[in-house]
Design a protein around this nucleic acid. Sequence first.
DNA 1: CTGTATCCTTAAAGATACTG
DNA 2: CAGTATCTTTAAGGATACAG
Lengths: 165, 165
Amino acid sequence: MPPRTRLDGLNCSLAQALDVVGDWWTLLIVRDAFAGLSRFGEFQASLGIARNILADRLATLTRQGILARQGTAARPRYVLTRKGRELMPALVALMQWGDKWQSANRPPVLLSTESGEALAPVRVVTPAGKAVNLVRFSPGPGANSRTRRFFEQRAKDRSRQSSLP
Amino acid sequence: MPPRTRLDGLNCSLAQALDVVGDWWTLLIVRDAFAGLSRFGEFQASLGIARNILADRLATLTRQGILARQGTAARPRYVLTRKGRELMPALVALMQWGDKWQSANRPPVLLSTESGEALAPVRVVTPAGKAVNLVRFSPGPGANSRTRRFFEQRAKDRSRQSSLP
DNA sequence: CTGTATCCTTAAAGATACTG
DNA sequence: CAGTATCTTTAAGGATACAG
């Protein structure tokens, strides 16, 4: 597999997020961390992942500040940092989507740890609380020329033809 | 790369979601579809992806019912279906996370298409609207024995030691 | 128990030429 | 313009033995 193309050209927060958690194992490790796993061996047993791969992912996640090593160096625990815990909405949204659209067998249920209540479907809203059903993108303050051209082109396309479904 | 281990054993909606949209390109294609791209060539130019890979991903996304082919067979448009549009919360949550924690340069801004307003941070709440900051998992009605054992073990661990951060 | 270090395999990604 | 068909590359992933 040739080195995968980096999307540095288009500054997109999604690409940057995927750069860290976009690989198949990483989000599953984070999920297990939410479930309370913290030991190397626990992740290994839970995921059936090869040891070297797991070691690599844990190191990356630690370096990225998503997990933190605690306890002795010889037998550390990996626990979620704030940055890691803030992946929760994305994780839950993905799980709910998979649950709704992909699940053949009934998967585990998500509950609030604090209250034990079920979770509502994750929604996107404006600051005022109005539901948002469709989003568009605007070039940010630091958009580079490539990004700007991209959006200008998009605007032209849109005015010429019918818009999204 | 040996066939990656399938997590069929543990029925998890996250794993099932990642099975479909968990690869690096797929979510970026979906993002572009939200941005209004629909042509093969548009995706290709936007992402710099190889043609055969793009063709493969578009076919998979279409087969999965996330994109639908419209227009002539010779020059189709790929547009998001309902299933695809419902990836929005997950996509937005990921982008917001990347924006907050990973973005060096200021990325594009997300706006409501309907009202043009900015988006609030995606939050997880209970049906009553109470904020949820930490989640735990419960075996679903269809949990298999492996899954059940997993949760029983977790419960024991939790009672023995201090819980998550 | 938590890793490293090796070796091996292969499937995934790229490049490119070609077709309808 | 929208793919398909090849060919090649290579790095990601697995297995496993070994070390602290």
